[in-house]
Structures are given as structure tokens and as C-alpha cells.
Amino acid sequence: MSKEPLIAARGVWKFFGDFAALREIDLEVAAGTTLALLGRNGAGKTTLLRMLAALSSPSRGSVTVGGWSLRQSSARARLGIIGHGIWVYDDLTAQENLEFFAGLYGIPKPQPQIDRWLESTGLTRVRHSPAREFSRGMRQRLAIARAFFHDPDILLLDEPFTALDDRAAALLSGLVEQAHAGGHTVIISTHQLREALALATDVAVLDRGRLAFRGPNTPELQAPPEDFYRQFTEQNAG
């Protein structure tokens, strides 16, 4: 890789009891890359992404962002994360949710940013209603605002399009494209190959906890799912 890695996982293993969910992962991601993290169910995508998001620590090896351990607050401040949960408080209003996270991310006068994100997610009208009264789509859009509004330069998206309604999916696609155009680094873990390969500059494929492939996204990779995974898993078995 020509550029200095922004995200580096070196010799990473993760054990749950005796089971090794990740086996000696060496993965470097340069700034400005959009990486599609692919693999079948149970391949270890979410485990790796949780580690990159500072939600889990490696059993062996290290993960750094910009050369810093993720236990450093400054490294975590650069991350914008959409995980399996929506990470918003049902008993707080949309405004209060964003105010709370603005406080945690040390944004001194967050109101203009909150206004902008509520506007772009179409939640201005319901800003003072508790999130529990929102429809599923509205909650998802609030989750997107929560993930993006501190202007992170690294986006970690775990199955981000799953269960999104059309409006939220379009919003998220637009934001990911904008982030990529703005030189931000994006890692998307997903089963939706076509969408991921359309967005990605690079591809990493996990197979049973091992990194089976890591390289640029090329036209040769555009294959139907069954063939796509077979080419790497057979390579890995061999």
C-alpha cells in the first residue's frame, strides 16, 4: 500500500472462549479509502468492525487509528459508527439525543449542527418529541444524524442498509458518497454485494475469521454472490 495506513489491525485474534472468531488479521486502510468488508454469515465481519469501533478489544494483536490506540479518546472522536442498534435514547427527544452526543463529542455550541442535521434528516418538525414516538424510519434517520453530525473522518458501517426504509437508505447512500468524495475513510460491512461493490474502492473478504482477500475493487470482482465468495474461500482452503 502506497499511503500511510489510517487504520491498522495487526496480528489480531479474537477468542470467545475457545472459539477463534478472528485469526491473525492484518488489515491496513489508507485515508480516503472506501473499503467493503465482505464475508458470509459468521465470517467475523461484525467482530472485526466492533474492534475497529473500540467496542471490543483484541485477544491478541493491536488496532490503531492514526497511530493511536482506540483507548485514546482522540482516536475515538474520529469515528462515526452505525451498528446493529440505533444508539438513540427512546425517552429523549431528537433534540436532546443530539445534544447529549454533542456533549460527549465535545462540540461546544452544537445547535447550528443539530439544526442542520434535523433538517437534512427531515426531523425538524418532531425535534421535541421523544424518539419512542417516532416511526421506525424516523428513528433510523435520527440514528444516521447521530452517527454523522460530529463530522467524523472515519465511518464504520455495519450492515447499514439492513431494514432501512427507502428514504433512510437514500439518505445514507448520499452521505456515504459525500464522505468518500470528501476524502473520508469508510468501512462498510455488508451482505449486499452489489451495493457495497458499487461504493467501494477496496475490498476485504473474511472467511471463517481469516482475511481471505484484500485488494482494490476491480471489474473482475463483480460476480454473483455464490461465485464471488467461492473464488476466495477455495483460495483460502488451498
Binding site: 473500540a54 451498528g83 442498534g85 435514547y89 447521530r146
Partner: peptide, 10 residues
């Protein structure tokens, strides 16, 4: 809503 993850990642 997995809010504990949000706190830990902050």
C-alpha cells in the same frame, strides 16, 4: 437500542 455501545465508543 444498544446505547451502551454508543457510550463506550464515544
Amino acid at each position: 437500542n444498544d446505547c451502551l455501545d454508543a457510550l463506550v465508543a464515544a
